[in-house]
Structure formats: structure tokens, C-alpha cells
């Protein structure tokens, strides 16, 4: 710390409770999406895709571990990554509805990955400049990894879009299904506004036009129409999830909860 540091910079770094909540949101997104991808393994269309999806899931679980551990440190509770992943009730999770969307067919999974990975690249890159050094370091590392996931999703969107009549139809239906869930990624609520206001951490809101531009370019390259949904789904960031969420978390936590006091 230098004497020339402004009051604003100190304030920005000092909002540890805010950083803890933000890290938990991002960690929950990664954990829940990783959990969904785990459901694919041994069911993918090719062995190469079993490999690719498990690789992506592994990266996402890695991001979740780093972010949840950081959250537990910053909020002063000392909770570990596992305390947060396995010890919270489903209402306490703060992931977006998008990440918990059921896998559907392979096209739905690709559409979900497309939306999330483009968002994650942009947001992690922006958060790499955060005033919280732990968050900045997590974000910088995750940004390079999700960029591989983005390439995987881009490639499949185009391949399915242009492949056969059936794959084109399914990919279009998948985009239409997923698109209402993309708005929540960019929501600016009080937490995000506060952190952005002091320059502590970037807001995802201003990233939406770039995201739109990049994702639309891929959709157009795939010969598909950019969906124009008439509604937007939200609630996950407030712990108001869909009915499919509780079973997802129950499955995640089942063994851990079956053995109270267990060490793994």
C-alpha cells in the first residue's frame, strides 16, 4: 500500500463482503454448469465428445473450487469449497438459471455452452482487473480456459447449423430454447452496481453488446437465425431457481450428506 493510494481504491478493495458474494455467484455458475456436464459423460455422441465434455467440466469444477474457497475466505466464515458446495441448501445457491438448464439434446448443451462461454470469456477478462487480487488471479486463469470452451461451442454451433437439415433444425430450436436465459448473465443488481461504482470489480452489464456481436456472428456463420425472445428468465441470482434445481443439488450432495462428519 502506498501513501498516494486514493480513498476510492482503498474502499474498492475493502468491500470484502461484496467480493465474497460475487465470487460465490461465479463459483456457483461454474459448479452447476460443471455438474450438468457431468451428466453427459458416457452419453456423448462420440468418444471424442465424452472426452471434450469431461475436460470442460473439469475446468469448470476447478473454477468453482477456486472461487468458492475465495468466497469462504473473504466473507470471514472460513468455509471451504466443500462447505459451500455441499453444506448449503439449494435456495442458497446464486447461479443463473442458464447454468442449471437441463442438458436436453446435444444441441441444447451446445447452445448453453455457447451463451455461457462467450459471457465467461468477457466477464473473466474484465474481472482480471479487479481490485481484489485473489479474484483477479482466478479470473485471469479462468479466462484462458473458458476461451477453449468457447471455441468448442463455436465449432459445434456451426457444424450443427450447417450439417444436415435435422441438425440445423435442432440447433435452431436449441438457440430458441436457451436465449431467454441469457439476459440474467448481464443483470446489474445492487451488488454488481456497488462493486462497479467503486471500481472494485467490473459489471457484466456493459459487456452485453460485445457478447451479442460475437455470439450473433457465430449464429450467422452457422446459417441460423438469432433468436428474439419475447421474455427473459431470471431468479437464480436471488436463489429463486426452477423446480429442476433442487434434485440437481440433492444429487450433488447426496453422498456427502449421507456420511455426517466424513472426510474424503
Amino acid at each position: 500500500m502506498t501513501t498516494t493510494e486514493t480513498h476510492g481504491a482503498r474502499e474498492a478493495r475493502g468491500d470484502t463482503a461484496g467480493f465474497a458474494l460475487l465470487a460465490a455467484r461465479l463459483g456457483d455458475d461454474a459448479l452447476v454448469l460443471g455438474q450438468r456436464l457431468c451428466q453427459w459423460i458416457t452419453r456423448a455422441p462420440t468418444i471424442e465428445e465424452d472426452l471434450a465434455l469431461s475436460n470442460i467440466a473439469l475446468d469448470l469444477i476447478g473454477h468453482a473450487r477456486a472461487l468458492l474457497a475465495l468466497s469462504g475466505t473473504l466473507d470471514g466464515t472460513g468455509r471451504t469449497e466443500d462447505d459451500l458446495a455441499y453444506g448449503r441448501g439449494d435456495r442458497e445457491f446464486r447461479n443463473t438459471l442458464l447454468t442449471a438448464l437441463p442438458n436436453g439434446d446435444f444441441a441444447v448443451t451446445v447452445a448453453r455452452q455457447l451463451a455461457y462461454s462467450h459471457y465467461a470469456v468477457l466477464y473473466y477478462e474484465a474481472l482480471a482487473g479487479s481490485a481484489e487480487p485473489g479474484l483477479a488471479a482466478c479470473a485471469a486463469r479462468a479466462a484462458t480456459e473458458v476461451d477453449y470452451h468457447r471455441r468448442h461451442a463455436d465449432g459445434w454451433t456451426v457444424r450443427l447449423g450447417l450439417g444436415t437439415a435435422e441438425s440445423g433444425r435442432r440447433m435452431q430450436a436449441a438457440l430458441d430454447r436457451v436465449w431467454p436465459y441469457t439476459a440474467e448473465l448481464f443483470d446489474e443488481d445492487d451488488l454488481v452496481a456497488r462493486l462497479a461504482g467503486t471500481g472494485a470489480a467490473a459489471s457484466p452489464g456493459p459487456l452485453r453488446p460485445v457478447w451479442r456481436e460475437r455470439v450473433h456472428a457465430v449464429v450467422e456463420r452457422a446459417g441460423l437465425a438469432v433468436p428474439a425472445p419475447r421474455w427473459e428468465a431470471r431468479g437464480g441470482r436471488q436463489g429463486l431457481h426452477g423446480e429442476e434445481f433442487a434434485p440437481l443439488i440433492a444429487e450433488l450432495q447426496s453422498v456427502h450428506r449421507q456420511f455426517p462428519g466424513g472426510t474424503w
Binding site: 472426452l51 469431461s54 466443500d82 474424503w264
Partner: peptide, 28 residues
């Protein structure tokens, strides 16, 4: 693979993911 979604810690989940991924790789 059937236990990936239920691994009781995130560390074990990562290890199991890596293992199942290796098996797909061996198949290839």
C-alpha cells in the same frame, strides 16, 4: 462415470473426472 455427479468432495469430483476422461482417451 455414474458417480461423477455424486462425488462427495470437489477434489474427488475433479480426480474422478480426470480418470474417466483418461479412460475415454485410452479407448481412442
Amino acid at each position: 462415470g455414474g458417480w461423477l455427479t455424486r462425488a462427495p468432495s470437489l477434489h474427488r469430483k475433479s480426480v474422478l473426472l480426470a480418470k474417466v476422461q483418461d479412460e475415454a482417451g485410452h479407448g481412442l
